[in-house]
Design a protein around this nucleic acid. Structure first.
Length: 609
RNA sequence: GGAGUCGUAGUUCAGUUGGUUAGAACGCCAGCCUGUCACGUUGGAGGUCGCGGGUUCGAGUCCCGUCGGCUCCGCCA
């Protein structure tokens, strides 16, 4: 038989009572986390989102309550009225409320609960339950302290961002969720229109064009905490819908955008109390690729890539000679103290770099007993020693070498660097290393097609000093020059995560037309896709620029998790499903009819089990 | 689209070379217990070995397919 809440009000949360509250009466409400029945004494750990308080039941305090407590089970929702007393026996230092307990005079059972499909807390262990089970019962998973803490961090981050943006004069403007596709390269989620049958909205990949239009409208400083949607495959740090801190400002140069972003990030990271360097160090894209092999370097540790290509300019060793001839690279990383790596580990690392397209992984081990290398036979002891020396390796170290196309060498060694650092525990905890990556290329060489593809949306402006080169490339048809053109685009990278990116936008029609041309967009096609925006540009567009920061990733870093699902209340699985709601789901035929749609795929084909 | 890996009790896992009735811990249920906080203790219930097919006298174990979780490549700022 359940009790009614009636007029009962709680006086304290379950995380609140302290020694100085002893002597008062308290009414607590929450979930039964644990009962310990000792016969004449029964202890109940009562939990809410603020903490856990121990409630004691005994005949001496209330006969009725003591009998009733025997019927409690895990996750029942109860209210307790009782006296707060300092504990007689041992205090519990593990609980914030551990100096006191509540002696129950009255127990109200507000609701029962079925036995949960998994234990919410297993002593001393975190996330031991398979994720599909947890996702299916997300409402229970979210009762766990670690997830509640993460979502509280999330709320704090959002508040910090709003407070800061407001304090520096930015205006929070909302933009529609139902709009037209914006030109950003990812697949759109589309929504059919009932009133315009056969037409579709697209969910925003980002509010890019709309925020630029707010600049044209004169709002001057815009920001929004914007939900963005991209229908692409998921990753540990990527969901189909995610949240950005989106900003845009008029009459702004790069330095002004940098100052705003550094300010808001410093404000957010002040939540940690850890050191957070402002202004951020800067690194050009070119240097990032050269030194770290990636455009989002984790600079919390060293192990930079070393270039050994020059050592092989006149080598007889065919595999390396052909790499040098075809304008490839031979680079390496030095793994400190890893000369003891076994055959098995080396094979594992070889497989690892092959995922990134590397043909193989050569190694040198500077063991105490002598130097060993997979290249000993073809290159000889002298050459191996000089390579190790050139790489800066010392006794006890291992050197890993990849040869091949520049992009493959960078990708594989960049990933290997991080992999070894992880395995060897070289990455310090609780350290936040932000940096700006600047001077991104405007175009990316596409090895399949031989074309230069745009790396950004088409409203990204060029670096002033590259404009003459750009004009030559487009107007005189010297397309090979496109690879050298740099954009006024920049990323924030923290601890190896790309936190966000921004740029100074194009605001002049003449340059804009050249960029369309270079990106292979005809005037007609450009007009068709975003003519409204090109029109707007012609009515007095101020110079402007902005940034978008991925809030989920910021929160991941603050929470110390590598899994974006840990910072979202209701995330989707790697196959983009919600296991709790079982979405995406079917719709009634009548709904389709109303929209003038028919489904041509066999739904059974993709049906579960 | 591709690769790797996992799937056995409610949960986390073990399960030998293919061989009797598939085990453990936690959880759950019932009893005992005056100070527990990973309570203790006695007893009990609980299994479509993800699903489908095949090989075999015999499959949790071997083979093929398939579904699902996770990670990565492609994709995506």
């Amino acid at each position: 038989m359940l009790d009614n809440l009636g007029n009962l009000e709680r006086t304290h949360t379950c995380g609140e009572l302290r020694e100085e509250d002893a002597g008062s009466e308290a009414v607590l409400m929450g979930w039964v986390a644990k009962t310990r029945d000792l016969g004449n004494f029964t202890f109940v750990d009562l939990r809410d989102r603020y903490g856990v308080t121990q409630v004691v039941f005994a005949e001496a305090f209330s006969k009725e309550a003591h009998e009733k407590v025997k019927t409690l089970r895990g996750e029942y929702v109860i209210a307790v009225r009782g006296d707060v007393v300092e504990r007689e026996g041992t205090h519990n230092p593990k609980l914030a409320t551990g100096d006191v307990e509540v002696r129950a005079k009255e127990l109200f059972i507000l609701n029962t609960a079925k036995t949960t499909p998994f234990q919410l807390e297993v002593a001393g262990k975190e996330n031991v339950v398979n994720e599909d089970t947890r996702l299916k019962h997300r409402y229970l998973d979210l009762r766990r302290k670690s997830l509640q803490d993460n979502l509280i961090v999330r709320a704090n981050v959002l508040r910090k961002m709003r407070d800061y943006m407001d304090s520096v004069g930015f205006l929070e403007l909302e933009t529609p969720i139902l709009l037209r596709s914006t030109p950003e390269g990812a697949r759109d989620f589309i929504v059919p229109s009932r009133i315009q049958p056969g037409k579709f909205f697209a969910l925003p990949q980002s509010p890019q064009i709309l925020k630029q239009i707010t600049m044209i409208s004169g709002f001057d400083k815009y920001y929004q905490i914007a939900r963005c949607f991209r229908d692409e495959d998921l990753r540990a740090d990527r969901q189909p819908e995610f949240t950005q801190l989106d900003i845009e400002m008029s009459f702004a140069n790069r330095e002004m955008v940098f100052r705003v972003m550094e300010g808001v990030m410093a404000s957010v990271f002040s939540l940690t109390g850890a050191e957070f360097e402002v202004p951020f160090p800067r690194m050009t894209y070119r240097d990032a690729m050269r030194r770290y092999g990636v455009d989002k370097p984790d600079v919390r540790f060293g192990m930079e890539l070393q270039d050994l290509t020059g050592e092989f300019s006149d080598t007889d060793f065919a595999p390396f000679a052909s790499v040098v001839e075809s304008d490839g690279e031979i680079k390496c990383v030095v793994a400190k103290g890893c000369s003891g790596y076994s055959r098995k580990i080396l094979d594992g690392l070889q497989d690892f770099v092959k995922r990134y397209g590397a043909g193989g992984l050569a190694w040198i081990k500077l063991e105490d007993g002598g130097t060993k290398s997979s290249l000993m036979k073809p290159l000889g002891e002298n050459k191996i020693s000089s390579l190790a020396e050139k790489a800066g390796a010392e006794k006890g170290d291992a050197v890993f070498i990849v040869a091949g196309r520049k992009s493959i060498v960078a990708a594989s060694l960049g990933a290997l660097r991080k992999e070894i650092a992880k395995n060897e525990d070289l990455i310090p905890d609780g350290v936040y290393k932000p940096l700006w990556v600047t001077e991104f290329p405007m175009f990316e060489y596409n090895e399949d097609t031989g074309n230069y593809d745009p790396m950004h949306h088409p409203f990204t402006s060029l670096m002033d000093e590259d404009i003459p080169l750009f004009k030559r490339a487009v107007e005189d048809g010297e397309t090979d020059l496109l690879g050298q053109i740099r954009a006024r685009a920049y990323d924030i990278v923290i601890n190896g995560y790309e936190i966000g990116s921004g740029s100074i936008r194009v605001h002049q029609s003449a340059i804009q037309e050249l960029i369309f041309k270079a990106q292979g967009l005809t005037k007609e096609r450009a007009k068709e896709r975003f003519g409204f925006f090109l029109d707007a540009l012609e009515y007095g567009t101020p110079p402007h620029g902005g940034f978008a920061a991925g809030i989920d990733r910021v929160i991941m870093i603050l929470c110390g998790t590598e899994n974006i699902r840990d910072v979202l209340a209701f995330p989707k699985t790697a196959s983009a499903q919600d296991l709790m709601m079982d979405s995406p789901g079917d719709v009634d035929k009548s709904q389709l009819d109303e929209l003038g749609l028919s489904v041509t795929v066999d739904p059974e084909k993709n049906a579960g089990d």
